[in-house]
Design a binder for these strands. Structure first.
Lengths: 154, 154
DNA sequence: ATTGCAGATGATAATCATTATAATTTGACA
DNA sequence: TGTCAAATTATAATGATTATCATCTGCAAT
């Protein structure tokens, strides 16, 4: 945790940005909630708990900055809100998501799975892939069980 | 074209919606601009050319309706705007997109390419896939050539 | 043909996320 | 200590989308 913070600090410094207290608090919130997919508003509320004087605009700017540095990825699941997701340390590619249409839960898939597909796209479409976004919409394990349980013999 | 319009009309009727003149004008615009990825505003401006009295709200409502009927897919490339993309006739799956980070162009990929990946997700994550969104970001063929041409010996 | 009614529409106001602005603060460095 | 650029805060502005509400349309029953 501290290690990853250090790393991000160095990344900032390498582009002559500073790790201000506000930025540090924001990064800490992201690290502590890595499993979630927080919106800017979510982050703002959480950061406020440890740094009550922070402004929403600063959170937006920080997230934007982290996004440029590829520390976080900005994603969008189709509701009108951008969400910010920490890139796993050392991950080459952005991970994928499984969005449940029943309960709204979001699972992460770290496996790449797209190597073959990218090769095809590069070869057949002559498109030089830099990044990708893959989201599956469907029914998660939990909701499948609920459906089976509650709907078996009515 | 007329054939596809008929088909959409039937789909509407099957859910007891009507194909009003405004809705028809909107669908026609979508059919005539199938290659593009129009925002609601774009659609609005185009529809206004043939039906000047239409309101923006109606366009939004129509696009929303078509989206529910899976006639169009609502997509989001990360700028703050939703775009509406006609589903190809008979297509099981939503097609993929190649977004060029240099010129902003968007290519469509109709091949599925994800069959294997979906199988893995269904098996290993017990996630029942209903739909997917796959977008590659990178450099399109044209921009690659420009880069090579203009940057070869300076 | 007229009435009644549900669904659609158009104009506009309201909402919500995000971005821009301007005044103030901070922190490194001379 | 004084200076200056970067960063921050509070707030206003923007832009996309949604809600509201009065009006309109087309059809079924009278």
């Amino acid at each position: 945790m501290e290690h990853r913070l250090e790393r991000i600090k160095k990344q900032l410094h390498s582009q002559s940005y500073k790790l201000t207290p506000q930025r540090e608090a924001t990064v800490r919130v992201l690290l502590e909630n890595e499993a979630d997919h927080l919106s800017a508003e979510d982050v703002y509320l959480l950061v406020k708990e440890k740094a009550p004087e922070i402004g929403l605009a600063t959170v937006y700017r920080t997230l934007e900055l982290l996004s440029e540095l590829k520390v976080v990825d900005k994603i969008n699941f189709g509701d009108g809100v951008s969400r910010y997701d920490l890139r796993k340390e050392g991950a080459e590619h952005f991970h994928h998501h499984l969005v449940c249409t029943e309960c709204g839960s979001v699972e992460e898939v770290e496996e790449d799975l797209l190597e073959e597909v990218e090769k095809i796209v590069e070869k057949d479409w002559k498109f030089q892939v830099k990044d990708h976004r893959l989201t599956f919409h469907g029914v998660c394990r939990v909701c499948q069980e609920i459906t089976v349980t509650s709907g078996n013999s009515s």
